[in-house]
Design a protein around this nucleic acid. Structure first.
Lengths: 105, 105
DNA sequence: GCTTTTGTTCGACGGGGATCGTACTACGGC
DNA sequence: GCCGTAGTACGATCCCCGTCGAACAAAAGC
């Protein structure tokens, strides 16, 4: 336990706010991340995505999504696997995620 | 029939972008406006809403919503009647609006 | 015509956020 | 133990946006 198992902070379902979620989704890069995660139920390391931003910027975006309650992040080796919190989002805002993902542009 | 009575600029349905819509919705005041409009199919003058912002700020918010394609605004006397572009939004992003409006907070 | 009501425009201000580079940490492989 | 890979932390920068007040515009009513 000497090691601070800093499991990354995630908001509980009832702590997720619609405004925060919308703010998180209202960015092109983060929206691209969400789209990619929607196609990988098992989750994936966002570092592999061709987003055109630096690593530190990517960290910022993933943290924003995590703190908003949009994604769940779990450490795995030197990587961090992100996955969409579909169940929570669908329960709180039914249709929102589907609507966003249905957008053609 | 292209009538020139369009005083205010509104994006066509196919010009509406998901990122812009999300940015428009990602503000507490504007979200409150959208919620109010959702309860008034016929539209209403946003000036009557108890939003706690000045008139000029309200103008800014309504313009943001209009330019994003979220609301339609029509002049009526000295007032401007705003109404939700439900049909367009539902067609483009089915479920998004319902999901947002379903949010308890 | 004058006033009131409603809303717009403009400029200014302040805060937040998207971005980056650099330095740093953690884990895995050799 | 060393190194490479993946990601984080921190500070700096820049720009956008929400906010306001003051001045203006337009329509309605008297």
């Amino acid at each position: 336990m000497s090691v601070m198992t800093t499991t990354l902070a995630h908001p509980e379902r009832d702590e997720i706010r619609i405004t925060t979620v919308l703010q998180a989704l209202a960015d092109p890069v983060r929206l691209q991340i969400v789209r990619a995660l929607a196609m990988h139920e098992e989750g994936l390391s966002c570092g592999v995505l061709p987003l055109g931003v630096t690593a530190s910027t990517l960290t910022h975006h993933v943290r924003t999504l995590r703190e908003a309650g949009v994604v769940r992040v779990r450490p795995q080796g030197t990587s961090r696997i992100s996955s969409l919190r579909r169940d929570d989002l669908d329960a709180l805002f039914p249709g929102l995620l589907d609507g966003v993902l249905a957008a053609r542009r």
